[in-house]
Design a protein around this nucleic acid. Structure first.
Length: 265
DNA sequence: TTTCTTACA
DNA sequence: TGTAAGGA
């Protein structure tokens, strides 16, 4: 037998790494045709076909363990079932990547908006926004580590979500996040016209001051408004400027639906 | 030079 | 999976 090739040659032929071939062997997926006296692995034409099949199955998203089972059993049923499972998992992966894509687009969009609208108020139309209740706290309190740790409701990716602070005319502020999968809608901010102001602040006192200023401006321009003041914290924008928190303050001027009631005129 | 084993990021 | 060490 002189037709066999070395691991290096096989790797070159099949465009995979030598390490990967040894890994397949360790997992019992691909054994050499024989081992030479000098411990060198030797591979024949059968192994070449086997390896190409292994590579194909791996490319189809099948785990090495499942590939092993396929190679061992080689039944139609088994193959069909495993490919089906690969399909499901790939579907999940696609969904995960799409969420990531959406998030990146949103971050870039918000960042662009901040560049455009920095420190100036404007009126804009907004879609209805369903929110999930997180918790409430005293409106004079500030968010600290202890408060967050004590909440029974967990937010899975704090730095990826908009945190909505909703100030009704009470002494408490309610915190909401976007509705997470399986979450319960606790409140819906109505669609309609909103007065909006975006700002970046380094410390809390500035934020309080800005909110006060915003409220006074709103009252002066639009009179007493029925809706709550909404403060949205976009912590992911700190990616662009460290140490600064990015906020948008919103106040509904005229809602498109019945909730909150149309006023002024 | 190539491959082997083993260990590690 | 890739990379590195140290020996055959």
């Amino acid at each position: 037998m002189g037709a066999e090739i070395t691991i290096g040659e096989l790797a070159e032929l099949m465009q995979v790494s030598v390490h990967q071939i040894r890994y397949f062997e360790e997992k019992g997926v691909l054994l050499p045709s024989y081992t030479d006296t000098n411990q060198y692995r030797k591979y024949g034409i059968d192994q070449i076909y086997q390896l190409s099949q292994i590579i194909l199955l791996r490319k189809l998203g099948m785990p090495v363990q499942a590939v092993k089972e396929c190679m061992a059993e080689s039944g139609q049923q088994v193959m069909e079932e495993k490919l089906h499972r690969s399909l499901v998992e790939i579907g999940g992966e696609i969904a995960r990547l799409q969420l990531l894509e959406q998030f990146i687009l949103k971050v870039l969009q918000e960042q662009g908006d901040f560049q455009m609208e920095k420190q100036s108020c404007q009126v804009k139309m907004r879609e209805a926004m369903p929110l999930q209740k997180w918790f409430e706290m005293d409106s004079a309190a500030t968010l600290d580590a202890r408060t967050l740790a004590e909440q029974s409701v967990r937010v899975n990716a704090l730095s990826e979500t908009d945190i909505h602070y909703i100030y009704d005319r009470t002494n408490t502020v309610s915190l909401y996040t976007a509705v997470e999968p399986g979450g319960e809608v606790g409140r819906v901010l109505p669609a309609g016209e909103y007065l909006s102001c975006r700002l970046q602040v380094t410390d809390e006192s500035v934020l309080k001051e800005e909110i006060g200023q915003f409220s006074r401006y709103a009252e002066q321009e639009y009179g007493e408004l029925p809706g709550p003041l909404v403060l949205i914290e976009k912590s992911y924008l700190s990616l662009f400027s460290r140490d600064k928190l990015h906020y948008e303050i919103l106040l509904c001027i005229e809602s498109g639906d019945a909730t909150g009631g149309a006023d002024a005129r």
